[in-house]
Every structure is written in structure tokens, then in C-alpha cells.
Design a binder for these strands. Structure first.
Lengths: 344, 344
DNA sequence: AATTGGCACTCAGCAGAGTCGAGTGCCAGT
DNA sequence: ACTGGCACTCGACTCTGCTGAGTGCCAATT
């Protein structure tokens, strides 16, 4: 068991270590923080914290450094997040205002978050698995090419080009469009994909019309599949290089995860949010994702789908400030997209 | 003046240094390369190379290391590039085959190039400044939203959504579409943008139809502007971390340039290609771009527009092999897109 | 029971000294 | 033009001793 003052000491250690990157000793603590006790007392508390594996010594008789578990306890006991300054808040709204479509909103969000935190920022697209297809459009281009456009009610647009082998007339096109539209519009992405798959087997390749349909349906299926895959935007990758000192081993796996995206997507979606929609994953807790030296802070901006904005950085980061930034940004984007939806 | 054997020695130094990352001395050279002379003779040659500033000593009396100028001479005297193995060639075609649209081709290209070279790979989109708009489509969505789609003859598609304030009928839409189409189709991106700008001033905001047109034209103008901006795809960023040892200072500016893209775009487009369409920029030659410790190899895949594929890495890299890879990949993509165009 | 001052002990980090060896530069000889 | 020989340089490594920050523990105090 850790005493109340023990937690205070832990907090002091985390704060000082995050600030200075130096292992912190009992003497420094009494100097910098107004505990009303002597260094020896702090030492006793520290011994307890060490028993609980909340702090550890890099080498015998040097200061102590928070362990992953220590950061965890620290974060869990963050009673209140320091709210952002008004300057920061206005910065966020300036960043976000004037955004046109969904892509734009999220691109601005991720930039805002990275400037605010100085870390790598991540923004998840709203999940489209439950999105409904609201519109289908086929556009004939010259040279027998066709553009197949899908739009969801959540505002995501996908367009893909295909090269058709068979010629077609204008009314072939409208009939085909109506046929595809009947299959997918109003349906969720998942249902739409099933419907398309079902139609596929029923095609009679002898019929010219079905031959055309098969090519288009294939593309539609691909696009629906793409919708089902979640998507990320990121920014501030270069910050990893600045914080390189904070990673014992190479930042290679981190850069790789960032480029891969798949790992980060899984990580982000598996995190468990608290009542406020915030979630934190620290160091070794990310081991399964090959990110044992990194922490991820995330905040839901869409409570229904758990779509999130987040921040990725070394375990040694300013959790209080960054969590506040994540929370505020998530809040802004959430409201922005909500208003957007309402106006639709 | 550097003697013929002097160049051989330079080549040996570059090769050994690239391989081992150790400054190379006269003794190592005679051991590893079959010059028919003694170490003392090599030393004399090396003294000359040093006078010419092609090699330099990290500290007095240690081996020599190629300077940027040395790499430059080395590259300029690369008489023949080692052609890729058949295994590598088939790897390239496997990577590229089955690509559907332009985005897909370039995405695959960049992946191929990064696996081949183990460096950061860069692919420029074909320049769209001279591209011609081939198709315009307006799609009405629910809630007064409209999707504005542009397609160029080079196969690039842009789609953007806008929220209209005014209602409209189906035939408003077709009339508007025809109006916009008349302005831009068949015109180059640049001309189209001018035409749109011209039309803009002529609008009478009192008329309902023109009110609608103004909203759409604004979006079209944005899209055309986006077309005019060149674009890059990249892959293999994580490789920078692996090669970090090769950069004296931080890799931060590199990661930043990669995220910015603008710098790289300028760099890539300012490079001067040789008769084969290859271009190399080494170390300090990139100083203006903040990449004084990096080299860029590029190869045109579209001689007309100088659209390029390229590789970015530390000055200490295997120029011969990587140049060969760049050349081959550029060649493949060039042919692929050409065939594509012809079939259109 | 909690706190404190005192004290012995540990150990990273630093500086100085010594050694080693790879490598150069130069010169006289072939 | 090339070569062997030789003195010289200097980074890298090792060893040594020192210092100081910091711990851990204990007996004394409140």
C-alpha cells in the first residue's frame, strides 16, 4: 500500500523526471516541492514506492525514475487535467474553422494536435462500417473508362476508375446505375457489400448487360471494402526524432508502425475509454504492438463509434498537458462534426 | 589532375567506405583490391586525391573518407550501372502488375523502390499543369450538398464536396454542369483556371442561377489549383532510422522535409537529368534544401514532363546499385503508364 | 508510530596517464 | 615511377584514482 504522501512523492518524481530527464533523488524533491518533511522521510516513502515497483533506480544509488506502472498510477490519480489556456483554445478554433469537407477537418485536427503537444498526432476517421451508402454515381469517360463514385451518409466519398472491356450506351449506364443504387443505397456498408456479393453470383455472363454489371460491381465491392477499413491521418512524425533520447532502443519500430498504420489502428481501437472518453496506454502495455517504449493518449470525438484523436510519444511525456490537449481537441472536432451532421 | 589509377583508388575508397563505414587506409586498399602496386604508391595517389578534395581524413593519420565532391566524381565516372538481377526485375513486375488506376500504380512503384534500395523512396505524380480537363461531373446529394468531380486526361481524379445555400432543381444541375464543362473541358488546367476566374467576375449574384454557379465555380477553382500543385508519394521513411548512424546531425530535418513534401518537390523538380533521364544530387549540393547530409537519386519516367521516381538517403549510400534500381523502376513505370495512355 | 540527523557505502562520471596500433608522410634506393 | 623503411601522429582503449550525488540503515527524538 502506498500512503497519501507516497502518491505525492510519486507525482513529484514523475513531474521532475519528465521535465529534466534526470533520475530524481530525495534531496531534489524536498528542494523543489514543499513537502514539510526531511529528505530522509522522502527516502522512506521512495523505498515503499520502489517495493511497489512504481519507481526504479537506473543504477544502484542514483535517483529514481518512474516505471511504466508508476506512470500508470500517476495518470490514474490525475484528479483534474489542467485546462488549456484561452490562447491555446483560440488556436484550436482558428486551426479548425473554415474547413470544408471531412478530409479537411481531420487534416486540420491532426495538425492542431501536433502543434499543441509537440508529439506525433493521430486522428481516426469515423468508422464507416456502420455508415450507410447514400449515393452512387457512374461517370463514363472516354476510352471505355468509367468512374464509380460512392458517398456515405457520414460524408466520406470514394471514387475509383475502371477500364471496361465492353462498350455501352448512355441508357445502359443509367440502368446500371439504378441497379447498383438499388443494391446499396440506404444500406450500411456491410449490408451493401453482402448485397453486391449476392448479386454477383446471380450474374449471367452471357448477357451483355450483366457483363458490364460484373465489372462495375467488382469495383463497387472494392470500394465498400475500403470503406470498411478504418483509416488514420497522422502528423508530426518528425517529432519522434526530437524525442529520440527518450527511447532506449531505435525509433525504427515506431516509424515503421507509423508507416504501416495497421498496427496503430488496432492499438487505437483496442484502447478502453473512461467515462470522459479518454484512454491512455503506457509503455509495456503496448508491447503487443511493438511499441513498448511509447505511450498513446486518445480521446473519443464520436462516442457512438469510438472514433478517436490521439497522441503518440515516449513514455516520458507530459501526460497532464497532453491529455488536456487531446480532450479539448476531441471535444472541438466532435462538436464540429455533430453540427455538420445536424445541418445535413 | 587525377591520374587514371587515382580514379580507381577513389572508386575503391568509395566502395569500401560505403560497405564498412570505416575510413579506409592505403593498406586496406591493396589488400582488398588487386592493384599491382604497393601501399606506398597508393598513398601517393591518395595524397593527390586529397589535394583535389575528393577524399578527406576525419582526423590526422586515420584512413580517408570520400567527400561530397569525391562521391560526385565517383558517380560521374560510373561508366556502367550494374543491371539488376532477373530476380529483382521479376520482383518489380510482380509489384506493379495488377495495378488499377494511377494512384495504385504509383503506390506500388514507391513500395517497389523502397524494398529494392532499402532507402526512402519518392515518386512524383505526373505534372498536371499541362494536363487537360477531360470531364466534369456534378452530383447532387441530400441536404443541399453537391459533389464536384473533375477528371484529367492524365487520369487524375479530384472530387470535392460543397454545401450549397440555395436550393436547385435537376435541370439547374445539368445546365450548370454544361456551363462548367464548357469552361474547362478540353482546356489545360492552367487555362481552365483562367477561364473560371474570368467567368467569376462576370457573375450576377442577383440571379439565382449565378448564385448557384458561384458556389460551384469556387470549388472548381480550388480543385484546379490542387491539380496545379505537384504531388508526391513516399515510402520507407523508417529506413532513415536504420541509417541514422550515417547522419552526423539529427535526422529531424529529414523527417521534417519528408512530412512537408514541398521541399522535396522543389528539390526533385530542380534536379537536372542526364541523357538517360537520371539525376543525382549529393550532400552539400542539397544544402539549400536543408538536406546537406543526404543524397537524392532520381530518374525520369516521363521524359516530356520530367516526372520522376527517386530515392533519398545518406550521402554514404550505394550509388551504383541504387541508381540501377531507380533507372529500372522508372523505366517500368514509364512503359506501364505509356501503354495505359495508348489504350485510352 | 512517524520523523529525523548522522553515517557508511555504492557507483556513475570524469580526468589524467599510459599503451597500442592503424595509418600517414617522406626519403633514399632501385 | 615505384618501393621499402622509418619516424611520427593521434584516436581509441584501458587503468587508476577521485568526487559527489544519492541511497540504506540505525539510533535518537517527538
Amino acid at each position: 500500500m502506498v500512503s497519501e504522501r507516497g502518491l505525492q512523492v510519486l507525482r513529484a518524481i514523475v513531474q521532475d523526471y519528465v521535465e529534466t530527464r534526470e533520475p530524481v533523488g530525495s534531496k531534489t524533491i524536498v528542494e523543489r516541492h514543499a513537502f514539510g518533511v526531511s529528505a530522509a522521510t522522502i527516502r522512506n516513502d521512495m523505498a515503499q514506492l520502489e517495493d511497489e515497483e512504481l519507481i526504479a533506480a537506473p543504477h544502484t544509488s542514483s535517483g529514481r525514475v518512474p516505471t511504466d506502472k508508476g506512470y500508470r498510477v500517476f495518470v490514474d490519480h490525475l484528479s483534474q487535467l489542467r485546462p488549456l489556456s484561452t490562447a491555446q483554445r483560440t488556436a484550436i478554433s482558428t486551426f479548425l474553422e473554415g474547413a470544408t469537407d471531412l478530409d479537411d477537418v481531420l487534416a486540420r485536427t491532426v495538425r492542431a494536435l501536433t502543434t499543441l503537444t509537440g508529439q506525433v498526432a493521430i486522428v481516426q476517421y469515423p468508422s464507416f462500417a456502420q455508415a450507410h451508402v447514400s449515393h452512387v454515381e457512374l461517370v463514363a469517360l472516354e476510352g471505355g473508362r468509367m468512374l464509380v463514385i460512392l458517398v456515405t451518409d457520414t460524408g466520406r466519398v470514394s471514387q475509383r476508375m475502371t477500364q471496361l472491356r465492353t462498350g455501352f450506351e448512355a441508357d445502359d449506364l443509367t440502368r446500371l446505375r439504378d441497379r447498383v443504387a438499388a443494391l446499396v443505397t440506404g444500406r450500411s456498408v456491410r449490408q451493401g457489400a453482402q448485397a453486391v456479393a449476392g448479386e454477383f453470383v446471380a450474374l449471367d455472363v452471357e448477357r451483355h448487360e450483366d457483363l458490364l454489371a460484373s465489372a462495375v460491381l467488382r469495383v463497387v465491392a472494392e470500394e465498400l471494402e475500403e470503406f470498411r477499413q478504418d483509416k488514420l491521418v497522422m502528423a508530426g512524425t518528425a517529432n519522434l526524432a526530437r524525442r529520440e533520447q527518450d527511447f532506449r532502443s531505435s525509433i525504427y519500430p515506431l516509424l515503421e508502425a507509423i508507416e504501416e498504420q495497421v498496427t496503430l489502428l488496432r492499438l487505437m481501437s483496442e484502447m478502453v475509454a473512461d467515462a470522459e472518453g479518454l484512454s491512455v496506454s503506457i509503455g509495456r502495455e503496448n508491447e503487443a504492438f511493438g511499441l513498448a517504449e511509447a505511450s498513446v493518449l486518445a480521446g473519443d470525438y464520436d462516442p457512438a463509434t469510438h472514433a478517436r484523436v490521439g497522441v503518440l510519444g515516449p513514455t516520458r511525456m507530459d501526460y497532464a498537458t497532453n491529455l488536456a490537449a487531446v480532450r479539448t481537441v476531441a471535444h472541438y472536432v466532435g462538436r464540429l462534426l455533430e453540427d455538420d451532421e445536424r445541418s445535413r
